[in-house]
Simulated scan of single mutants.
Amino acid sequence: MTDWTQHLAAFGPVAIAFGAAIEGQTSVVAGGIMAREQVLSPAVVVLAAALGSGIIDYLLFAMGRSFRHTRWVQKTTSGPAFGRALALIERYPSGFILSFRFIYGLRAAGPVAVGVSTISTRKFAILNAIGAAIWAGAFVALGYAFGPVVMSVLERAFAHAAPVAAGTAVIAVVVGVAVWRWRVGLARQRGAR
């Protein structure tokens, strides 16, 4: 195992959990690719992603429940996504909790909306854990399934990265020198007047 893969194996689960909490799907799909490349166990990747997603969504739920009258919660509740979330919660409370991670625009507003609703904390906690596991499993599976395609694209891109980076650096230096000389020339013209 190279140093790079050792670092990924050591810190990958933490990065995946953090990415799942903050960013969402991209880090979880990347975790699936790491599982496909046998850097991490698929079970570890799913667990890390589910924990990251589940914890942040529970915290957002708790904020909605405990701080309903704060500026941040009121700002979140004033958006159009919040109104859609409340309508869905009223019609399909369990289904909404299990699926809001998959609905674009409801990732942050969804748990806050559940927090200001009348759904019990216990019900949310159980369904949130199940929903986080389903979501994590689905996106890890996508990364695992499409890992070879992604890796081949990355390998081709990195094969040409050094010449492209060198060419870009040369162009940047030439343009920088040209702009600098042009500005010096303008300054001299202004000084001569």
Rank of each mutant, 00 (worst) to 15 (best):
112 V>Y: 01
183 R>I: 12
65 R>V: 03
151 M>S: 11
188 R>P: 08
193 R>Y: 09
53 S>T: 15
10 A>V: 09
59 L>E: 05
13 P>I: 04
151 M>N: 12
13 P>G: 05
150 V>S: 00
40 L>A: 01
179 V>R: 08
59 L>M: 14
76 T>Q: 08
105 G>C: 03
28 V>E: 05
87 A>K: 15
56 I>H: 07
140 V>L: 06
157 A>H: 04
168 T>Q: 02
69 H>A: 14
120 S>E: 05
86 L>V: 12
147 G>R: 02
46 V>G: 02
11 F>S: 13
120 S>I: 05
31 G>K: 02
1 M>G: 12
56 I>F: 06
78 S>I: 08
111 P>S: 08
54 G>K: 02
31 G>T: 04
149 V>Q: 15
135 W>T: 06
43 A>Y: 14
26 T>I: 15
135 W>K: 06
21 A>Q: 06
5 T>C: 09
104 Y>N: 10
30 A>Y: 02
12 G>E: 01
67 F>H: 15
119 I>P: 04
99 S>W: 05
35 A>K: 06
177 V>T: 06
85 A>Y: 00
63 M>Q: 08
92 Y>K: 15
53 S>Q: 12
107 R>L: 05
2 T>P: 07
176 G>R: 07
155 E>H: 14
171 I>Y: 00
88 L>R: 14
103 I>F: 05
146 F>W: 11
10 A>S: 11
45 V>K: 04
94 S>C: 06
153 V>C: 05
176 G>Y: 05
112 V>W: 00
40 L>T: 00
136 A>S: 03
83 G>V: 12
28 V>N: 02
134 I>Y: 08
44 V>S: 13
163 P>W: 03
54 G>M: 01
148 P>S: 11
152 S>R: 14
20 A>Y: 00
14 V>K: 10
114 V>H: 02
181 R>G: 02
21 A>N: 06
124 F>L: 11
77 T>L: 15
134 I>S: 07
98 L>R: 09
42 P>G: 06
55 I>L: 14
11 F>M: 12
114 V>T: 10
116 V>D: 01
5 T>A: 08
180 W>I: 09
12 G>A: 00
61 F>Y: 07
116 V>S: 04
